[in-house]
Design a protein around this nucleic acid. Sequence first.
DNA 1: AGCAAACGTTGGTCACACCAACAATTGGTA
DNA 2: TACCAATTGTTGGTGTGACCAACGTTTGCT
Lengths: 157, 157
Amino acid sequence: MPMDHPPSRTPARVKDRPTWLISRTFARSSGLLAAGFESYGRGLRSYHYRLLAALDEWGPASQADLGRGTGIDRSDVTAALSELESLRLVERSVDPEHRRRNIVTITPAGVEQLLELDNVIDGIQEQVLKPLTHAQRRQFIALMVKLLAAEDESSKG
Amino acid sequence: MPMDHPPSRTPARVKDRPTWLISRTFARSSGLLAAGFESYGRGLRSYHYRLLAALDEWGPASQADLGRGTGIDRSDVTAALSELESLRLVERSVDPEHRRRNIVTITPAGVEQLLELDNVIDGIQEQVLKPLTHAQRRQFIALMVKLLAAEDESSKG
DNA sequence: AGCAAACGTTGGTCACACCAACAATTGGTA
DNA sequence: TACCAATTGTTGGTGTGACCAACGTTTGCT
């Protein structure tokens, strides 16, 4: 048997690379989020949460605007809204001024669910960042913001 | 039309959260990796690369050990190795001492492909981290390492 | 009036991650 | 030695997030 000692978890060439570290950090983060959604989210997932958040913050909106505003693909907006509607967390009606469009509105139950999810998700931020000091947390966040701001600049260019 | 101004890309409650920032950072990182693999990788993806890296570093190994060593599920190890084998980047033979097992070996062509991919992936580290100074890069990496090391501790606990 | 664009819906794919079931082989124990 | 549980590799499946194509209907512009 050629492998006569247990290998390290990750080949050395892979494990120190930033792209790998980012992916493992994301895996941990999304794993905790998925667990949180599963425990408290009544089958809701990230897409649902983002759409509820958008509706609460921006007010009634068309599906196309929701898609553009959240970055979620149109077909996924449709699918997630159908699920939210069946849970009575949103309502959809045809826009009388533009009959091609639906106007989507969050319901009071939707607002309530959003606040619950906020709490869950806030707790998960704590969990994800637990190993870091408060200063390190601010640092980590600032670095990611910088990474992403540069991308925003280049995509607007 | 209720939304009479273009909303920001992301609802405010979402956009400053570490889990969101991590996911966008990952999306950017994996997008660049996917583009790199597509341009230079002959249809190979992350799983393939990780398996080639493991074989090059650890030497011939059983599939089960490869799966344990890289964290890739058994069925995905099988699928990826089948693809690598069909490209003649690895060879598989039955272990004569343990006829339930295959021994997987990287081929010279596999080593060559791995080195090419190394170059591509190294370039992508540069791209991903481009907005940060060198000191910030070291910082970012150290923070992620700390986050992940704590997880390693808790999963060994 | 005609045509292109927009909208929402339906259907599809991909990558990564994970799980279930099965047949064959091996190792350990009674 | 026989039996049974564990291991191995294969085949098949699901979920999430992300993305794309095609279609019929409605709207806006020339």
